[in-house]
Amino acid sequence: MTTAGIRPKAEVTVTTEWDGTGRVALPGITDPASVAPRDARELSRQFFRRLAELEEGTYAHQYARNTLIEMNMSLVRFAAGRFRGRGDDMEDVVQTGMIGLIKAIDRFELSREVEFTSFALPYILGEIKRFFRDTTWAVHVPRRLQELRVELAKAREELSSRLDRDPTVAELATLLNISIGEVTEAQLAANGYNSSSLDAALTGDGPEGGEAVLADFIGVEEEGLRLVEDFHTLAPLMAELSERDRRIIHMRFVEEATQAEIGERLGCSQMHVSRLIKRIITRLRQGMLGELGCA
């Protein structure tokens, strides 16, 4: 049979898959990658529910897991689109994001009571950001200096071979027909191409006589810094809410008032307050995920 809302290309039928001990009915999808994002959400719930019941390593478990991966590839493409124009091959970015998607699928549980898209996006974005961190400059350096760094490396190699020693700054400047100051600036800029890992071993004695690493000599990580980006994204979304919605959010999450207390102030039932809060949070979450404009 065909499930309503699924594009014709992604025909859905009820098929029977084996789990090694008995039969487990799973929706059969001829082309999971072509399932529309809206339909993928409901189908994903069905597959996650089955996945939790299946034994890992069985054919049925592999089928459910692979189908979830293919159905949610559009989420990876959506996340990768945020990095379009950075000069890297988008196929590499998408493939990197797929790693995050697979991690999210393996760790997701329906009991979390959150949409899989909300759960998976941080994993996908994390892998993509790690990709850019590992393959690009550690700090921002002007393109002029990036290009000069390459020319400087070639000049140093040429002069070292010719002179049988390391060339001086003046000799490099003469060969490249630039000033000594520009050579020095390019050498300093080259330090920004690679960053040292916080786990990199350092010479000398570390704490308690063990091997020292860079992280031992810097301050602790401030957890609040992770929230800065979220706050910047959330602020304009909060501004778009009505005065009553902002008041409800303030009472619930700033004043930490209960839903019953909020209902008394607003003159409505606790159940109605619960629905209002859920609606507001859903709207804010969609805004942060960039889904409002796509709805």
Rank of each mutant, 00 (worst) to 15 (best):
V35C: 09
A36I: 01
E42K: 15
S44R: 05
S44M: 04
Q46T: 09
F47N: 04
R50T: 00
A52P: 00
E53D: 14
L54T: 00
G57N: 02
G57T: 01
A60D: 12
A64P: 05
T67W: 10
L68H: 01
I69T: 11
E70L: 09
S74K: 06
V76K: 00
R77K: 11
F78T: 11
G81M: 01
R82K: 15
G87L: 12
M90G: 00
M90H: 03
E91I: 06
D92Q: 12
V94P: 09
M98S: 05
M98D: 02
M98Y: 08
I99H: 12
I99C: 14
L101M: 07
I102S: 05
I102D: 06
A104Y: 05
A104V: 03
R107Y: 03
E109G: 11
V114L: 12
T117M: 07
F119R: 06
A120D: 05
P122R: 04
Y123C: 03
I124A: 13
E127N: 05
I128C: 09
R130T: 13
R130A: 15
R133E: 11
T136A: 07
T136I: 00
W137T: 06
A138E: 04
V139G: 00
V141A: 11
P142F: 10
R143V: 12
E147F: 07
